[in-house]
Design a protein around this nucleic acid. Structure first.
Lengths: 206, 206
DNA sequence: GCTATAATTAATAGAATTATTAAATAATAT
DNA sequence: ATATTATTTAATAATTCTATTAATTATAGC
């Protein structure tokens, strides 16, 4: 019977690599360091994953899926647009809150490594465009009804993304520079979900 | 008389290093690569700057100053709060627009290197706190007057920062994934300044 | 117990990187 | 013209990192 402490070394390598990649990015994390933290020989990392790149990709892809999946499950609730939007923002926010370091990982790796960006594009294809088109439909309908002011879907999308990710991107810096306690930071994070919803809904008003 | 083409090698090294650091970050840029792009011997980079770290710090500090300076010049215009806030947002946006890769540099280096974060904190001290306190005063006055709704200064600050930086952080990814043309992206960027001002001012309303 | 397979390690090749040093070349001043 | 100083290069030490290989130890099946 496997002890929790003595679990699968392969899994331990994945977990440790994930933690380190999230903390310091791909370039700043060495397989040597991963092995050291796991407490195994460095060759073992390569035994299971052949290359550092493949190990990273396994983790990266997992995270991509985690962030794409919720947007595919179109719970086409027959609720008013505003309510659906509110849910979307809140769910997105909670997803990031549960994985606060992922936005930086995405940003860092997609910006510094063109290959990774290209492979992502190939993988997800025009899924983003389709999702945007779907919101666009709703938006146009509402605009015609006059319930919201004229605006581009892409702008709405950027606004939501901006508000939702940035607090998590900057929080370690903020905490240090403004000298925030854990509690203060948590309060801010707790408060921002509502703040973001409020801002988006207000900015839609005609 | 110095030819433009044949300018100062030291300056060429700084310029090239700056470009590469902004593009790929500190870790992914080697002094060998800088030298290759400059067209000089790799030892020359170390001759002028001793270490890669010192070269980076020179550039990093320049960028920090560039982004801190405008907020120190308190043009205490005797204009209404809303107008001053509008100016603040717009100036901040334009500053980033003129240096679109700097936000990522800051984020990347401050998040992946604790030493850099600590040294920044020591350098700027409680300047951020003081600037926040200053806005806080104004804000409290306006809230008392009832011209804006009750809200924390820090939340306002985060909202502005979120809206202003994110488009520049994500634009290379956005361009690729949504398949935007340069013109389309420029339009979005052009439009966002107003969008951001609008959102912030609206969210302040009681 | 014996054998086959899986997991793990030690050793190391090979490449890249930072940094230094000594020598060579160019520029400047006297 | 020569001495002095600044710039540049070639060579290389020292380190780190990825990846591979061969050998060793552990595990499971029969």
């Amino acid at each position: 019977m496997k002890n929790k402490k003595d679990e699968n070394t392969e899994q331990k390598i994945i977990d440790t690599a994930e933690r380190l990649f999230l903390e310091k990015g791909f370039a700043m994390t060495s397989t040597t360091e991963i092995a050291r933290e796991v407490g195994c020989n460095q060759a073992l990392v390569h035994y299971y994953f052949r290359t550092k790149e493949k190990l990273f990709e396994a983790i990266f892809e997992k995270k991509i899926k985690m962030f794409v999946k919720p947007f595919l499950e179109s719970k086409d609730e027959y609720k008013p647009f505003e309510e659906r939007l509110k849910n979307l923002i809140e769910n997105h926010y909670e997803l990031i809150k549960a994985n606060p370091k992922v936005p930086f990982l995405f940003l860092n790796e997609l910006l510094t490594n063109p290959v990774r960006l290209e492979s992502l594009r190939k993988k997800i294809g025009d899924l983003p465009k389709m999702l945007l088109a779907k919101i666009d439909e709703d938006l146009k309908t509402e605009i015609k009804k006059g319930t919201i002011r004229p605006m581009n879907t892409i702008d709405l999308f950027i606004s939501i993304l901006s508000l939702n990710i940035t607090i998590f991107l900057i929080s370690p810096v903020l905490k240090n520079i403004i000298n925030l306690s854990d509690d203060e930071l948590n309060n801010i994070i707790e408060n921002r979900k509502n703040e973001n919803v409020l801002m988006i809904l207000r900015c839609l008003k005609p």
